[in-house]
Design a protein around this nucleic acid. Structure first.
Length: 317
DNA sequence: AAGATCCACAACCGCGGAAAC
DNA sequence: AGTTTCCGCGGTTGTGGATCT
């Protein structure tokens, strides 16, 4: 039995997140780290359920997330992995570290499904249908390989959990003098928020009280996230003066003081934080640029093959 | 120009597994 | 051992923007 809904209590806000909420959430996570989601709403004062907070973080605010514009490489990878794993988006997402399961799922449902249907009229009968057929009619050998994939995921998660300071080498090369996790984390959070603010600025809410703070904040976020790519700064947002007596402003000053702990994170000076550069630099260590036949081989072959592929210098984990 | 329809994506919902009690 | 609680996952829905009529 599943548990009853966690968010049926009164006063829980639903719907799109506002920049204010994002800032509060990111600020809190910056301080306490992700996890213990139940405590997030109470500790932050957010009128959101814990689930919503977790979702917002994992799907949107979490550092290192790349959004939109799936490359051909990514697309092929998703198609292959979907055929192998079925609709197990979290597992698929683990091979595309910059993409969230939700993003992949959406992309599959909105783009790839149709694309494959066009290409293969008999798609419903094969592996490239909706994932259920892939997993349900999975032969035993393939099921075992799937299990093996799960084990690899678990191993990876475990090693990450056991070594919080350890990050993939590609992420720590840009500035060896600072903890890579922190550097990437906050820079990317700001980047994500800046992106959000960009959209928000197009249709700012009527409450002018916060808009000046947000405007200021967006500039801060934009500056923190570096320049030259898709951020609020590229939209030509002007800085407006914010009244220091305004409590809202103070809130955001505080939030961004906190957030801009990452102004010391050196992200602005590192042009590699542009989405494109980040992708490229990461591909070196994620295996995203790995030839697909190797990937398939790796997924389909037995453990010995995995070892040999890794020995050849290809490391997913 | 206005309304209808389509599309993409963010967010919600409910379930299952696992940990905590 | 049984129950409750939490987290994560996959399916689905709602909404806003884009396109079409």
């Amino acid at each position: 039995m599943g548990r009853p809904p966690c968010c049926d209590k009164e006063g829980v806000k639903k719907g799109p997140w506002t920049p204010e909420e994002d800032i509060v959430l990111v600020s809190y996570i910056q301080e306490h780290g992700p996890g213990n989601w139940r405590g997030v709403p109470t500790n932050t004062g957010l009128a959101r359920c814990s689930k919503s907070c977790r979702l917002r973080w994992t799907n949107y605010l979490k550092p290192g997330i790349k959004r939109g514009n799936f490359t051909d490489q990514e697309e092929k990878m998703i198609i292959h992995l979907q055929a192998l794993l079925g609709n197990r988006w979290a597992a698929i997402a683990s091979y595309l570290p910059q993409r969230t399961d939700n993003d992949i799922k959406n992309y599959w449902n909105t783009h790839l499904k149709k694309k494959l249907k066009k290409l293969q009229p008999s798609v419903g009968q094969g592996n490239y249908g909706d994932g259920s057929s892939a997993s349900q009619s999975m032969p035993r050998g393939q099921w075992e390989r799937r299990l093996q994939t799960d084990i690899h995921m678990a191993k990876r998660a475990l090693s990450e959990a056991l070594s919080p300071d350890q990050t993939p080498s590609c992420l720590s090369e840009s500035n060896p003098s600072k903890p890579a996790t922190q550097r990437l984390s906050y820079a990317s959070s700001a980047e994500n928020i800046a992106r959000l603010l960009k959209g928000w600025m197009k249709n700012p809410p009527k409450a002018s009280k916060t808009s000046s703070a947000i405007t200021q904040s967006s500039n801060l976020a934009a500056s923190a996230s570096g320049s030259g790519h898709d951020t609020a700064s590229s939209e030509g947002i002007t800085t407006t003066s914010a009244s220091k007596g305004n409590s809202t402003v103070q809130l955001f000053d505080t939030s961004f003081d906190s957030l801009l702990g990452f102004e010391s994170l050196d992200c602005s000076s590192n042009s590699d934080f542009s989405p494109e550069a980040t992708l490229e630099s990461r591909q070196d260590c994620t295996g995203a640029d790995m030839p697909l036949y190797l990937l398939e081989k790796w997924l389909l072959d037995d453990a010995a093959t995995i070892t040999s592929v890794e020995d050849a210098g290809v490391h997913f984990f």
